[in-house]
Amino acid sequence: MRIYAVGGKGGVGKTTVACFLSLLLAKKGKTLIISTDLAHSIKDFFSIKESSQEFRISESFIGYEPDAREGLRKYISGIEEKTRRNFSPIVFEDFKPFLNFSSKDPSNYDLILYEKLKEKVIKGDYQFIVVDTAATGQVLKFLSLPQRLLIWYGLLLKWRKKYVALREKIKGKQEDELLSMAEKKKKEAEEAKKKLGEMEFIWVFEPGTLSIKESLRAMEEMKGRVKLRALVANRFSGENRLVETVVKRGRNLFGEVNLIKIPSFEEEPFPGTTQGEQFKDYLKNLT
């Protein structure tokens, strides 16, 4: 399995690059494109009317736009349901408003999106996964989360093992659900760390000052944490000093990095159009 992540400042053409790249990859093997932006646009790109989160674009090409809001709501209500059984009703009633609050906390969206991505990475039988990301920070979060979770589940296991050992002395041997949950989650985090660690990053930018500055900053941040596969200069026209700066910095930080220059088109490149075919041709080097 190969995982590509496409990133860049808003509006530079991340989704266009991610979608055309996936179209190319889908010819080689089963491909999944997943959007981790809250404002999804894969369906719009392929003009798909279906309302389901997961949809088929072609025979070997699946699209996935996870709904983070709904995911969080479901996650919390699952916890609420299970908790109701073990808590005294008085404590539970006091606790419920807090759970409701958590189910609407936007800072949890990224964590839900990570869970969805992890599920696909671990359990999916895809040959290629392309991640259409929201922001650089989000990708770095996805990459660092497994390590942080390994520490957390390690700690939880340590605590719980002590607890289970004590309980065994008093009440005898008993199956501990929390212990097995933590063990399972730790294993998943290990697997996610391994697979997401091999992620190849494609950075899209356009030759504008803001996009260039963001690119330079993002590359510094990504150094040592992710493999930079290619730089895509979108809407590129003629020689540009700013683009050279980015490429130079990229090669300084990551060694050999591909540069793909894509000119601006008179009409927007969409699948099935001549412009679309031309756009796709520029990305052939990446597959």
């Binding site: 916890i79 299970k82 404590v91 958590s102 949890n108 957390w152 939880l156 929390l178 949950m181």
Partner: peptide
């Protein structure tokens, strides 16, 4: 957020 998933396994009176 990850402590929340521990919640169902704790018994509280």
């Amino acid at each position: 957020f990850y402590l929340l998933e521990v919640l169902p396994y704790l018994k509280i009176d």
